[in-house]
Design a binder for these strands. Structure first.
Lengths: 214, 214
DNA sequence: GAATGTGAAGGTTTTCACAGCA
DNA sequence: TGCTGTGAAAACCTTCACATTC
């Protein structure tokens, strides 16, 4: 891969994948960049440019084969396989995520749960027994977990993440509202729901309308 | 306000606000753009440029007064007040959000709940009685709700949002994995947790490390 | 004719670097 | 001296427009 792929392009790949999944369900065989763009509020040129970073998937004069492009997208995104995910922190948000069906639908299977609360350790959530956070590093290694979701209080998130990194995990989705330190080879994404509400609050107060919504 | 403020700048305002709140708790009186940048993994120039869109808040040679800058940020973000928020869909994610303390801490108070499930309507969640989705438009208007969180299945999200828009709501946080149509004066933000996992999956498979993490 | 793929243009965001001020 | 505020430069991202292919 020569050129650096931008964060925005990667996000849009998810949108394309989503739109294509829907089109396939609607038994649509062929789709143009124009239609794809319309479905996700983008421009046709943007769609073509994004796809062109990864190859030439279309046919001039015709468009893209829905099934084929969807398969390609899933390969590029790495979701043409199942992922074993561990979830740390079975609190408020954590509990909701265990039952969140969208994850499994995309191949992200939560197969391991951790908490530090003695009342929760050993209990069963959706068929998974909650492990003691003390065994975090050991069990993550044993189970070859590649993606971890952190849903613990901000005050302890850094300690947890240090252990996660030590276990060799390369991807972390963090729900704690704190800036976490991770080494450069680890990919960290933050999901900060308060920040989204603050964006809305800013928009209402300043009468601001965003150009685009990713 | 002359210049258009970029989405990234607005997001970073939230980060500054968060860092400043922490600094204030640590009894730090003064902070430089360098320190602020370090705390949120940004650059000093970025911090100064972002702030400069809204005014000159610092003192050359010294830095910024923590308490004052925090207060300014809260005004700009519109979180120097309380917001009345309605939550639609008391499922998996919705239930977690009702109890999510971070929202109330930032002044976002969920004061209204809606669902279409007869077993849930009339029941009590954290002191709030669940209303019938049929009365959505009427009750949103009556209660002067300005921000709505949508946590319903993707299949019905557009119908719900149409009602929300009809009720005059100007800001929507959507958790359904679908591209929603709203008129230009309504600010819509999407929270798509699967997309974040897909980003991680892409990163692991392609050995990609993002430049920055917002 | 229709729609892709892509250099080049245009626009936006970030970084640089330094004048200006405490 | 130290650090802000900000034009200018650089980097980055999006859109245009058209040659190319079916």
């Amino acid at each position: 891969m020569k050129k650096r792929i931008s964060e925005s392009t990667i996000h849009r790949l998810s949108l394309y994948y989503r739109a294509l999944s829907l089109l396939e369900k609607e038994n649509v065989v062929t789709v143009s960049s124009k239609e794809l763009a319309k479905r996700e509020k983008l421009t046709p040129a943007q769609v073509r440019k994004d796809l062109s970073f990864f190859g030439s998937f279309g046919t001039r004069g015709l468009g893209y084969q829905v099934a084929e492009l969807r398969s390609r997208m899933s390969h590029i995104l790495g979701i043409n396989r199942d992922w074993r995910v561990a979830l740390i922190g079975i609190g408020n948000i954590g509990s909701a995520l265990v039952s969140y069906k969208e994850f499994a639908r995309q191949g992200f299977h939560i197969v391991k749960l951790f908490d530090n609360d003695q009342r929760k350790i050993g209990s069963n959530h959706k068929g998974i027994v909650v492990s003691d956070i003390k065994d975090l590093e050991k069990e993550l290694k044993e189970d070859n977990i590649e993606i971890v979701i952190v849903a613990v209080p901000a005050t302890v998130a850094q300690y947890i993440v240090d252990d996660v990194v030590a276990a060799g995990v390369k991807a972390i989705l963090n729900f704690a509202p704190i800036n976490l330190r991770v080494p450069p080879e680890v990919c960290l994404r933050n999901e900060n729901m308060s920040m989204e509400l603050e964006y809305l609050s800013f928009a209402v107060v300043n009468n601001h309308t965003p150009k685009k919504v990713i």
